[in-house]
Every structure is written in C-alpha cells, then in structure tokens.
C-alpha cells in the first residue's frame, strides 16, 4: 500500500512539470506578449517596458522558466497584479474558503445521492425511480450559474431564508484562525459564527453540488441494479440473512466501488463549478478570485493557482485510489 502511494506521489512530479511548461508557453504566446496582454491594447510603450523589466520578461526564455520553477517550488508565485499582494497569500486566504464550500457540496451530493440512487434501484420503475432518473438528467443539463441565480433569487432575495452573499455576516465579530469559518466558530467558542457560516454555505453548496449529485444518483442506481443480480447476493439470500445485512454488506459494499471513483472525478471538477458559484454568491474563494484574475489578466495569479489546483486534483485522485484499495481487496494485492 505504502509503495503504491509513494509511486503515485512521484507521478505528481512529471505531471506538474508538464503543466508548468504548458502554462509558461501559453502565457508567453499571448499576442504582444504578457505585458501587452496585461496592460491592454492601448498601453504605452513605456508602461510595457516597465512591466517587462518588472517581471523579468526580457530575460532569455530558459532563464525565465528557471526563475518561475525555482520560485514556484518555494510557493513563491510573485505578486498579484491586481491586489499587489503575494499570490501565496491570496492562496492562503481563498483555498480554505473553497475547500469548505467543496466539502459542503460533496456532503450534500453524497448524502442525498447514494441513498436516492439506492432506493431508485430497489424500487425500479416506481415514481421515485422515474423522478430520480429525470432529475439527474436535469441536474447535469442545467448550467451551474443559472441554478445558482435561481436559488439565490428564490431562497435569498424573495424568501429571505438565506443570506445573499459572502461567507459571514460582516457585522459578526468572528476570528478566523484556520480560514475554515465553520471550524473557526467552533474552536474560538463562537457557535453563532459557525451557524452563520453554515447558512452562507447552504445555497452555494447546493448549486455546486447539483451536478455531482446527479452523477452520483445515476451511477449508484446503475451499480445497485447490476449488483443485486450477482450470484453472491443470491448466496446471501440463500443463507437467510436479514435484508439489512444483505444490503449493507453484500449489495452496497460492491455497488459503491464505481461510485467512489466518480466521487473522486467530481471532486476534482468542483473547482470549475466553483468559479461560477462563487461569483454568483460573492463567495470569497478560489473560483471567484480566478474569475477576477481572468478578467484582469492577472497572469501571476493564474499561473500559480492553476498549478496548485492541478496538484490538488492529482492528490484527490490519489486519495480516491487509496480508499478504493481499502474497500476492494482485489486492488490491494495487485
């Protein structure tokens, strides 16, 4: 198992290397070079020259690449052109926010998706089944930002059940040692702040979790439908086991194997959904920060954030594979 983990971690190195090259080339291939792109078409020659020398854009490409890589391994991605603060600092602020949102979205998607998919399969052809199938089709078809707007309009603006934006009521006096606001409230003995953070999370989490929910329902349902016809389930029935033992031990344990893989893939994709969701709810996380970096051509930010996101994506998939090995003994042996 340890060997497996180490091997997968080593695989990170070539992936990140390839990605850094791609990013580097892409940024330099922009029309007029990055400085022009940053300042816009009407930038004066002076300001372009100033930016180029500021960012070392006049150096030979390999010098530039070397500088970029050696800084990046020390988590130094330069300063944001927009906020003028170190990119690493912006990461430390925004990543916990998006992590918290992603966890909430996954709790929503998994907590509802697996039971719903299971019962849809067991009541194959019933109204619940039909509803979950059409619902999951709708779930993947509706654009995230549209869903986010609808949720915000109905439940925040019209009904007033949830706050419309942000992560915490600004009037609330709360400390944030970890940047995970729900956790912060608990460790600073301020449960009201936790509750307030949860209320801020509900709608964004639903918007972000909708697609994973739909996918999880579909995969769980299909997988359970397969597994209930397996010979070993018939063996379990022949032993006279209680239905709940058969469900837990024989059906779900096998049916969830493909679901775990899908959850991993969806977890990785949450970043792209977060760009839209966080923008709609003015949620101060990675997604919103990247969206602003894109519209402001803040290349230092894009470069650094994309690299780190890619690393996280690979690590999430590693975690998925490891957990897969824990529930499927056949993988462990190989």
């Amino acid at each position: 198992m340890l060997k497996f983990v180490v091997r997968r971690l080593l695989l990170l190195v070539p992936i990140l290397f390839g990605l850094s090259v791609l990013l580097f080339v892409w940024l330099r291939a922009l029309p007029g070079g990055p400085a022009q792109a940053l300042l816009g078409e009407r930038a004066t020659a002076e300001s372009v020259a100033r930016i180029e020398s500021l960012y070392g854009l006049n150096d030979a490409w390999y010098v530039q690449y070397w500088k970029f890589v050696s800084a990046a391994v020390q988590l130094d991605f330069g300063n944001s052109a927009r906020t003028n603060r170190p990119v690493a600092e912006e990461m430390a602020r925004t990543f916990p926010a998006t992590f918290e949102l992603a966890v909430a979205a996954l709790i929503f998607a998994i907590g509802i998706g697996i039971p719903l998919g299971y019962f849809a399969a067991r009541k194959y052809g019933s109204w619940l089944d039909n509803l979950s199938v059409s619902g999951s089709l709708l779930g993947v078809a509706v654009p995230v930002f549209f869903l986010a707007y609808i949720l915000k309009y109905v439940f925040s603006v019209q009904l007033g059940w949830f706050p419309t934006q942000g992560r915490q009521d600004p009037r609330m006096d709360a400390d944030h040692p970890t940047g995970l606001y729900v956790l912060d409230g608990l460790i600073t003995g301020n449960p009201e702040a936790s509750w307030d953070a949860i209320m801020h999370l509900v709608l964004p989490a639903i918007a972000l979790g909708a697609i994973p929910l739909a996918v999880i329902v579909r995969i769980t349902r299909a997988s359970v439908l397969d597994v209930v016809h397996e010979d070993y389930v018939r063996t379990a029935e022949a032993k006279g086991l209680w239905e709940r033992t058969i469900t837990r031990r024989h059906v779900l344990r096998n049916a969830l194997l493909p679901v775990v893989t899908v959850i991993g893939l969806q977890a990785g994709l949450l970043f792209s959904g977060a760009i839209l969701t966080e923008t709609v709810f003015a949620f101060d996380g990675v997604g919103r920060f990247i969206a602003e970096a894109i519209s402001n051509r803040d290349y230092a930010v894009l470069q650094g954030f994309i690299l780190v996101i890619a690393a996280i994506y690979v690590i999430v998939n590693l975690l998925v594979d490891v957990s897969y090995g824990l529930i499927d003994p056949r993988v462990r042996v190989r």
Binding site: Y232, A236, A238, K239, R249, R253
Partner: peptide, 28 residues
C-alpha cells in the same frame, strides 16, 4: 422463509467464484 433458509435448507451453487462476495473476507 428467511428463518428456514440457511438453517434448515442450505444451498451450494455452481460457480464458487461468483457465488462468494469478492470484497468480504471468507471468515465473515
């Protein structure tokens, strides 16, 4: 019927590989 199955009447199936749950130890 569940009380009778496995206690009074038991069954052995044709294919021992597919008739055993692959992710649960034999002991369980």
């Amino acid at each position: 019927l569940r009380d009778i199955r496995g206690r009074d009447i038991a069954m052995v199936f044709q294919d021992p590989m597919s008739s055993l749950n692959p992710v649960v130890p034999i002991g369980v």
